[in-house]
Amino acid sequence: MGEEFVALSLPPMLIGICAAVACALPGNFLLLRRQALIGDAISHVVLPGIVVAFLVTGIIAALPMMLGAGAAALVAVALIEVIRRLGKIEPGAAMGVVFTAMFAGGVLLLEQSDTSDVHLDVQHALYGNLESLIWLDAFGWSSLFDWAALKGLPPELPRMAATLAFVSGFTWVFWRPLKISSFDEGFARTVGLPTGVLGLSLVVVAAIAAVAAFDAVGSIIVIAMFICPPAAARLMTNRLEVQVAWSVGFATLSAILGYVLAGYGPLWLGFDDAVSAAGMIATVSGVILGLAALFGPERAPMGAPAEG
């Protein structure tokens, strides 16, 4: 049991947890700034970025793809801003125009280019392939201390861990300015914080988390983790510190529970095949949000009288 678990389930589970937490952390601030759907937009425009990177370099490699995806995310953010200002359109609609058009462009490029022999398709972009990130060199728990075996880890794991470390570092270093500018942008500007730069760097960090997570787990998890755990945490508390802690907890819980349910749930019910782990993790995070919306202690709308 242990042997199989370490080789087949531990790495994807860890990758899932890292991706979930890395997305949930910036998600907290995006939620408070009412920019929650930026995550949705970014995860759509990642597709054209990846396709263009593939067409330029001709190989499926992590680095050019992540660069391409990151560039596409920045282009999208800039385009949204340009269209919003030039056309005096509300941000939601500007976002809708940009990300659908870029996604359509990505699909078209993908269909036009000869990618049939490489593993690059829309389905992969959406679901990811969490289940396939296995660790063939592992033989039980002792492999965790075996350097030769550790080198056989799927490369997504260290990459995702590094992303998580970076995102956590950003959140930790800029905690106070982020907190102030998320709650009261006007006050933050008055005390001399560069709110514009801060807002943009938050979006960039979110994009980095999204692109890295997308590579490993697909875009469904990215959108779900940007919004669901922070939203559920928002219904639990009024304090940002506690909210972030809850959101990390919820993200971790969704990743573990979702992976286990997807991998073993069908077996318990008597079916042979596992279901999509990415989809199940998103579903679990939704169930958590639903429970928080029904029973969370701070769920009442703003200004509504307290219950009881």
Partner: peptide, 28 residues
């Protein structure tokens, strides 16, 4: 209506969760 979440958060949550569940059903 019933919670303090803003509409964009509600949209994002419904979008991703329903889609995720749909993907689970597709694999089934």
């Amino acid at each position: 209506r019933a919670t303090r979440l803003s509409e964009d958060a509600a949209i994002g949550a419904v979008l991703s969760v329903f889609f995720g569940f749909g993907i689970v059903l597709l694999t089934v």
